[in-house]
């Protein structure tokens, strides 16, 4: 309670400095927010494409219905597999003529259906990596009545590397922005600590422990950080709305991301404050 009271009093005593700190944190976290919004939307787009990754096992014409039913059951029990749909020769022809309308006449004139029956195997979201897709394709190919298993290897590889690049870029830029934000906050909080250097020295003189001296500053850093986080959230939301209305439809950040962003801003404020006070305590320390 004392720490909170002191922190609030510190904020009231130096409103301009506090406002500067909030803006420093707000703008830094806002840049992270914008990046997170972009990264999230790239992720959503990639997940959409990735969701279409499937292994198609083309079946020989002599495969019996019983064999297919057993195989389908077995394939669906693979941990990597979400579902396996049987597409009969008739359905394949129907779908082909529906999807490729320019060849519909050719399909209708056929005397023998040349399209094979198949099993369309969808993979679990966690198992859409190139290795898993290839492994499932290999296992499925092992069935005698499977003529061939295809999965668009190039696409899977490309999507997977795109995702890795996006993830890596997100991590690098996120760390860079966070470091910049921490430096800015550090400067702002250090100014606040220096403004109260005399007070800290008096506290030491009367026998205050480091923890007692540090606590109000940590709370002040937390409050300032959270305020900066809310500012960043507001700015990110404003940008999202602006883009949404004028340019392109976007997905808003998931709730855990915004909560993590706020917590991050608060913790950043607290850590920066802690570092600034520690430096000041060392400066005033016995020498």
């Amino acid at each position: 309670m004392r720490a909170l009271r002191e922190a609030m009093s510190g904020i009231r005593r130096a409103p301009v400095l506090t406002l500067l700190s909030v803006m420093a944190i707000g703008l830094s976290v806002f840049s992270i927010g914008l990046f997170a919004l972009t990264a999230h939307n790239i992720d959503v787009a990639l997940s959409d494409v990735e969701g279409r990754v499937e292994v198609v096992a083309y079946l020989r014409d002599d495969a019996s219905e019983e064999q297919i039913a057993i195989a389908r059951h077995e394939i669906e029990s693979f941990p990597e597999v979400e579902s396996a749909r049987y597409v009969s020769k008739v359905e394949a022809l129907y779908e082909a003529s529906r999807e490729l309308t320019e060849f519909s006449d050719v399909y209708s004139d056929l005397e023998v259906n040349p399209l094979p029956a198949s099993l369309e195997i969808r993979l679990e979201p966690d198992h859409r990596t190139p290795d898993d897709v290839e492994a499932v394709a290999d296992r499925v190919s092992a069935y005698q009545f499977v003529e061939e298993a295809r999965y668009g290897r190039e696409w899977v590889d490309r999507i997977y590397s795109l995702r890795r690049v996006a993830g890596g870029a997100a991590a690098i830029l996120g760390i860079s922005f966070a470091t910049g934000a921490a430096l800015l906050i550090g400067i702002a909080v250090r100014m606040s600590v220096l403004a109260r250097s005399r007070e800290i020295a008096i506290m030491q003189t009367v026998g205050a422990t480091d923890g007692y001296i540090r606590r109000p500053f940590l709370v002040e850093g937390l409050v300032t950080g959270l305020a900066g986080g809310l500012l960043a959230l507001g700015l990110t939301w404003g940008s999202y709305e602006a883009v949404q209305r004028t340019l392109v439809s976007l997905a808003w950040l998931p709730v855990p991301w915004t909560a993590a962003g706020l917590a991050f801003a608060g913790i950043l404020g607290m850590l920066a404050a802690g570092r600034a006070v520690r430096r000041e305590l060392r400066r005033l320390d016995v020498h």
Partner: peptide
């Protein structure tokens, strides 16, 4: 150190009171 400083009172020429 805090324990020692509680047992040793220190008075300055310029008082060093907290103004607020």
């Amino acid at each position: 150190l805090p324990g020692l400083r509680r047992r040793v009172g220190y008075i300055f020429q310029d008082f060093r009171l907290l103004e607020n």
